[in-house]
Design a protein around this nucleic acid. Sequence first.
DNA 1: CGAACAATTGATCCTCATCAAACCTTGTGG
DNA 2: CCACAAGGTTTGATGAGGATCAATTGTTCG
Lengths: 235, 235
Amino acid sequence: MKPAPKELRRVSVFQEASDEDLTLLVEKGILRSIEEGEFFFFQGDPAVYFYIMVSGKAKLLQSNPAGQQVNLRTINEWELFGALGISKPNANYPATAQALESSTVLAIESKFMQTLLETRPQMAFGLMNLMTSYIQEMQARYRELATERVEQRVANALIRLAGQSGTKSSKEAGIELFFSRQDVAEMTGSTLYTISRLLSEWERQGIIEAGRERIKILKPHDLVKIAGGVGKQAL
Amino acid sequence: MKPAPKELRRVSVFQEASDEDLTLLVEKGILRSIEEGEFFFFQGDPAVYFYIMVSGKAKLLQSNPAGQQVNLRTINEWELFGALGISKPNANYPATAQALESSTVLAIESKFMQTLLETRPQMAFGLMNLMTSYIQEMQARYRELATERVEQRVANALIRLAGQSGTKSSKEAGIELFFSRQDVAEMTGSTLYTISRLLSEWERQGIIEAGRERIKILKPHDLVKIAGGVGKQAL
DNA sequence: CGAACAATTGATCCTCATCAAACCTTGTGG
DNA sequence: CCACAAGGTTTGATGAGGATCAATTGTTCG
């Protein structure tokens, strides 16, 4: 079922769009449903469409020739992805998008969006804002990877995830994340073994509660301290 | 001396701008000259201006609380930098910009650029293109850092630099780069010691010629092979 | 010529990746 | 409803890739 046009306002880029534009976008869009584990597009495919996540979750990943992959970003509901083709007519997706759970997306032709943008500066600014924040996040993660230890990077990743997609179990303070050790490893440039050891240690310290494909943050503040470099030294 | 308006066409974003717009930009812009080693702006400063490099070179870097820094990007002549504030009114620079040699820039208020962009979709697309390519480069470097060995990352960095700022000594094939071991270390997330050892080894193999703050690539093809992972294994 | 700074090189150590094997958890089919 | 299969997780042992430290040697420039 296609989303109601007004629903698109939940997408940051379309926050201030007119009702007519939103209707146009929904009409032009194609609804696609994808099962868990399936792919929206692969790295290198021509970027004909961009996507709006209507329901579900996905991850953007990039792999090197040897097949090792890194997780660039998680896409939550009402987030936009695959949008790099909007400004460049014949671009290719620089990453692969895979569904983390069964998902529904609205696929819209990049070309169509481009014509819209020509007369909607507000939307263009929204898109630039999105790109800007993405650049900033990538820069920060790049620096982390270059200068910080695994411990700190994982702490940072969890904090970031908690902010983006965390489900607050309102009762007992504690933010629950649904990722496997392997997922976290791909997000932090590490291995599932190291992540496993680290999470076990943190569980022993009562900072988190770990389960199968599940991490519950009990003491966010302690994570912040670890992220800041208060690891081994301060003990 | 302010550049002639038409000169600005050398900046990718302004390639297709009208003469009037270029004149306006130059008039609005402030010329700033900065000595080698000095700073254009620091990470965290309010992003009031964006800059066009008129002559000289600079680097964008980010440092962590401990003071370790990573090199995000080198800015060559007629490149634009500090532009993240254009779409967001009250943004702060996410990185520090330092002159690599005595440089002259044209500083233009982000706010002014924003009003211009509202009625210049072509310019907006140009800016998005720039952001897009930057995102792609950061993603690629991030993956490299996460999955590749120092050897491969350094090879990649040199290839990239050769493409961006290489001076071809037309006579004898050989692309000359002017960076210290420390610079390369900051670009690849390594240390000057490791880079020194690596470059010495490559010089022994005749792939490069190394000097003080100078690297001359003699056999680019061999670098490409190393970048592709043909290092220890294939010998 | 000497000071300042870049580069080299050796020795050492530490963080993590890797490999192997066992252990849980979850879902499925008999 | 139990048993088994599949996939996630844990844990130990080992080793490699680089970081770090220290001392020396080049190089450049005032």
